[in-house]
């Protein structure tokens, strides 16, 4: 078995996409790790849909305050200049296009950038939380996920078979094997995990991927 990137590395790669001064929302699970992976010379304003802008990193055990949590229920640290507001105001920011980047997990992403990240077969009671609002409202949607399912099946597909979160919304997919841009002309493989070939990644992908002219090893 060849090595794949671990979750920390996938999150680190995603965090490299945040411009200095940008407003970023981190979705449930792996995306939350990005809060701890911001380079020291960069300022990123993390927004959380439970009503907070400008928190710091994930809190250590000693720092935990359960009235200072992100939307994944993880305690975070305060930071000078942070502010609080209610849920309605939080989603005005989101729907109104005031969030530069959101990083979301996914079950499936289609070759056109359709996103399925909240429901799966056999679990009709699981909900979408703020995922639909974020997928529709944020200016740029980055998905972080494992390239394949537990059974080895593709998560990047021609058509999503899981319930949709939103259509044609994903810009960039970062997995344990690749960085793929969703373009009007299909999926563009921009970066690839060390030791993997395009053919090997293509074999684990349910839609056609086209290697970029300047295809690189994953850039951290």
């Amino acid at each position: 078995m060849k090595d794949r990137l671990d979750e920390q590395t996938i999150a680190l790669r995603a965090a490299r996409e945040f411009a200095d001064g940008s407003v970023v929302n981190l979705g449930y699970g792996m995306p939350g790790l990005c809060a701890n992976l911001i380079a020291g010379d960069k300022t990123v304003f993390f927004q959380s849909e439970n009503g907070m802008l400008g928190y710091g990193s994930l809190a250590t055990d000693e720092e935990k305050d359960y009235e200072l949590i992100n939307a994944s229920d993880q305690p975070v640290t305060p930071r000078p200049g942070m502010c609080f507001f209610d849920s309605a105001a939080a989603f005005d920011m989101i729907r109104g296009g005031h969030i530069d980047v959101v990083v979301l997990g996914a079950y499936q992403v289609s070759e056109r950038g359709d996103l399925a990240n909240w429901g799966r077969p056999g679990r009709p009671a699981t909900g979408m939380g703020g995922g639909m609002d974020l997928a529709v409202g944020a200016r740029r949607i980055i998905v972080t996920m494992l390239h394949t399912t537990k059974d080895g099946g593709p998560r990047i597909v021609k058509e999503c078979t899981y319930p949709l979160t939103a259509r044609r919304c994903v810009s960039l997919i970062i997995t344990d094997l690749s960085v793929i841009e969703v373009t009007g002309d299909g999926l563009l493989l921009k970066e690839i995990a060390p030791g993997w070939t395009v053919a090997e990644v293509q074999a684990l992908t349910g839609a056609d991927i086209r290697p970029a002219a300047d295809l690189k090893e994953i850039q951290l």
Binding site: E49, D86, S87, A88, A90, F91, I94, R95, R123, P124, A125, T126, G127, M128, G129, G130, G131, M132, D133, G137
Partner: peptide, 21 residues
């Protein structure tokens, strides 16, 4: 989830921002 799967409670699923609004 258990009650829903047994058909004993109804669920109206609402996106979080839509719920707030």
């Amino acid at each position: 989830e258990i009650l829903f799967n047994e058909g004993r409670v109804e669920i109206e699923m609402v996106p979080q921002g839509t719920l707030a609004e």
